[in-house]
Amino acid sequence: MTQVLETEKKTEQVGHSQARLIFGRFVEHKIALVSILIVAFITVLSWSVVGVGSIPGWWHLTYNQLNPLIDGGRPTMSVVPQWLGGEGVFLGEHPFGQDRIGKDYFAMTMRGIQNSLTVMFIVGILATVIGTVIGAVAGYYRGVIDAILMRFTDLIIIIPVIVIGALVGSIASTLGGAIDGPVILGILLGLFTWTTLARLVRGEFFTLREREFVEAARVAGASDARIIFKHILPNAIGVVIVAATLLMAGAILLEVALGFLGLGVRPPDVSLGRLISENQSSFAHRPWLFWWPGLFIITLALCINFIGDGLRDAFDPRQRRFRPRRQKKVLK
């Protein structure tokens, strides 16, 4: 009788999962894509230059060996090709120059980047896992468990991140030696930087657990673990991933700030922040010592922020803007 009215289209096609849609939207975000390439490039570059563990990298100099000063330590790299009137494209003996005592600044910068990235990845993974678990449990169970976990989170949030970082940095340097410096620093920082993420995840769980599909799963007999991991978490993953990206950008900046304050990774190892701190007084004479580490810090942090932005757009396409093909003049 009323079938006439059913205006629903019934076309035969294979479904597109959310993941594929999100990926499709992310790929549209050109800046984020380029950012991923840049971060990947810098990561590969730094590790391959410095080497992993006992395997040496391809660069012939190491970050702690002393070399004779060449041309006052100026960078030897040239990027302007000859046909443009430059000197050609080459690296030279010390592409990024040398510091006051002749260490190769390219090797030092790459080592610093490697340390920063190590800290970033460890903090990113550890804090994300801790924050997600705490946030998920608090948001899902609510009540007393939530109260306890959130008060605990509040306790840690009260202490400014940089203060915790500074303390943790000193602890890391007293513990160092046995374990690799940046690794232990990353682990310690990760233990204290999950708080924002936990709050976000909790908030997301709070709203998601009220959604009817969660109730439906409960009626279907799903266990708590299944509801949390199979039903709620996949829907909260956008929040987690975006927050994790921002967390990683924050971790890089925190690591270099600690290095700048003389905490965290200790000499003879290298930190980008420490490079800047040690060389700020020679800004007038050897500006490159200031610019190289700064350039890489900003590039990394900026790229990771852009990736986060791209992911946010991909997961939450509401704020995308309208770009008409042509804005026809409307007749009045």
Partner: peptide, 18 residues
């Protein structure tokens, strides 16, 4: 905004000074 979010505070401070 993105740029400011990505710059270390001390780096800005040193630049301002210099």
């Amino acid at each position: 905004i993105f740029l400011l979010f990505s710059m270390p505070a001390f780096w800005i401070a040193v630049l301002l000074k210099e």
